[in-house]
Design a protein around this nucleic acid. Structure first.
Lengths: 106, 106
DNA sequence: TGGCTATAGGTAGTCTGGCGACATGTATGA
DNA sequence: TCATACATGTCGCCAGACTACCTATAGCCA
């Protein structure tokens, strides 16, 4: 999978993965990998800045905890994030329809 | 439609649109708009550099002509471009499946 | 005891590609 | 005469994903 194909879609994926239950960064990476059948293997240098960006934008709330001697910052979807996710889903549907339409299936 | 959602997908769209018949830049913009139901309205600052990039990569061949006193540079798909388009289509299918899968339809 | 791996978080800097703004020129019709 | 459509192009900006790197703990194996 091309690197920059993800541009502009990563935020949606992250929001979607923390929709049902809050997750910490490392677990988000694993969840994305699992949900994509191994296609997505995002480096920490991608995911952590993205999480901070999404929190700053008000779409995620974070809280620290300690599990087994390791500190975790757990992110959960805010109500604004929930709305953003809904509109991202709609945008994705439009985008996918447009690209598929132009590419055709010749 | 978000601006940078297109990142990494534009090349595929351009190749697809010149697949059946060669087109010049301006006509490519219009064809993309038409094929997308008006969703895609790409500025010349996007399309012309992309065409040069694709020609340089060997995926497009160009030739000048004059129609009604106006000069046109017409692009057509090379055989390498045809192969690239096929693999781009495959990559798109994978990408779309992955994103749709992660987003879910909750 | 030391080293390796998995878990967990983070930053700094690079690079790329789509876009906005601008420049140039012709044809056409009001 | 001026606006608009047609037609091509460049330059510089900037967001964002990535590479490379750093820190730290827990657990396992030799």
């Amino acid at each position: 999978m091309k690197a920059d194909a993800l541009r502009g879609h990563l935020d949606s994926l992250i929001l979607a993965v923390v929709e049902k239950q809050p997750l910490h960064g490392y677990a988000i990476i694993e969840a994305l990998s699992a949900r994509s059948g191994g296609e997505l293997d995002l480096p920490t240098g991608t995911i952590y800045p993205a999480l901070r960006r999404l929190e700053k934008a008000g779409y995620l709330d974070s809280s620290w905890s300690e599990v087994g001697g390791r500190k975790r910052r757990t992110y959960e979807l805010s109500s604004a994030g929930r709305k953003a996710l809904a509109s991202h889903r709609q945008e994705w549907r439009t985008f996918a329809k447009v690209v598929s339409g132009v590419l055709g299936e010749a």
